[in-house]
């Protein structure tokens, strides 16, 4: 099955991004495809290259980049939500790209399911 993912909460404060990561990983292991993950609301913080957690904690941002690279996932950050929160090309982490909300609607149209992770 083709799954599109939407993530609406930020890193560390909220579990939704961890749940999304575990879901995506499990889905791919089961043979499903995840062509696109769309980051919206505080979810755009998943794409900040300035994130620097303690060494004994998971690195959420780099974890996404690795997963996306291994499985060719298009990770899109909403431009309007990103600019509001200070995420720009100059501090955009590897593996992410900034684009518009149309990418979310398009993902909803093209995927078999759109799974939303939020509050």
């Amino acid at each position: 099955m083709k799954l599109a993912i939407m993530i609406n909460e930020g890193v560390y404060q909220h579990q939704s991004t961890d749940s999304a990561y575990q879901f995506v990983k499990a889905a791919i292991e089961k043979g499903h495809e995840v062509p696109r993950i769309f980051f919206y609301h505080d979810g755009v913080y998943n794409a900040s290259s300035l994130t620097d957690p303690p060494k004994d904690d998971r690195n959420i941002v780099m974890r996404w980049a690795k997963l996306a690279h291994e499985h060719n996932i298009d990770m899109v950050v909403c431009v309007a939500a990103a600019l509001r929160r200070g995420i720009k090309d100059e501090n955009l982490a590897e593996g992410f790209r900034i684009s518009g909300l149309g990418q979310l609607v398009e993902a909803g149209i093209q995927a078999d399911r759109l799974v939303v992770f939020g509050d």
């Binding site: 431009v79 090309d89 684009s99 518009g100 909300l101 149309g102 990418q103 609607v105 398009e106």
Partner: peptide, 13 residues
């Protein structure tokens, strides 16, 4: 980010 992006279509051509 794409220069061609427009408000109305949100990054889709």
């Amino acid at each position: 980010m794409g220069e061609e992006m427009t408000e109305s279509t949100g990054g889709i051509d």
